[in-house]
């Protein structure tokens, strides 16, 4: 199940976003303060984290920076009513956000952005899984190769025994 985390100090924003995202069938977790959102990071793996910019105890960029260390795969978005240059630059350079959305938002844009963020998240996760698979397969191959080398060293020629279709050992005349 895809999990989405929403962080905003305004509960009414959170409930309207919840309404907006409900038909998508994602698991949406909402937090109205940074402290409990941090707690959420310890318990769940999120595909997408959407944070407000201006909040009482810590700003959204600081929070997302922390989230980046905790869950580097999660895609980070800012949804802010405070569209000034400094906050955008901070969001992009420090928190490396995927998109910077502004309030009031366009419903379609928010849903589409989260969808494409999820696609990227899944690509990252899939990429990591495939990479792991390749690594284990490579390790297995290497082990097998080494075993063969060892056998060959102990009993030269044993790895090159040729067999007939019925399994009987063929001895060539060349040796």
């Amino acid at each position: 199940m895809i999990k989405i985390q929403l962080v905003d100090d305004e509960p009414n924003i959170l409930s309207s976003l919840r309404r907006l995202l409900k038909p998508q069938g994602w698991e949406v977790h909402t937090y109205d303060n940074v402290e409990s959102a941090l707690g959420g990071l310890l318990e769940h793996n999120y595909a997408v984290i959407v944070s407000d910019y201006q909040m009482p105890t810590a700003d959204g960029v600081t929070y997302l920076q922390f989230a980046k260390q905790r869950q580097p795969d999660a895609m980070r978005l800012v949804l802010s009513a405070h569209g000034d240059r400094t906050s955008m630059i901070k969001a992009i350079n420090q928190a490396e956000v995927y998109r910077y959305l502004s309030k009031p938002w366009n419903d379609y844009e928010v849903v589409a952005t989260i969808k494409s963020a999820i696609d990227l998240y899944q690509l990252k996760v899939e990429n990591r899984q495939l990479q792991n698979e390749v690594d284990t397969q490579k390790a297995m191959l290497r082990a097998r190769e080494q075993e063969l080398l060892r056998l060959e060293a102990e009993n030269p020629g044993i790895t090159r025994v040729q067999r007939d279709a019925d399994g009987s050992v063929l001895i060539s005349n060349n040796d």
Binding site: E10, N12, I13, S15, S16, L17, R19, L20, P23, Q54, A81, H82, D84, S102, K103, P104, W105, D107
Partner: peptide, 24 residues
């Protein structure tokens, strides 16, 4: 003005989005 815009953008944001949810 920037601060006031922030104060207004928040409620306008969720009211607007709520209206679309209401429609559905």
């Amino acid at each position: 003005a920037a601060g006031v815009a922030h104060e207004i953008n928040n409620p306008v944001g969720y009211v607007y989005s709520n209206l679309q949810s209401l429609e559905s």
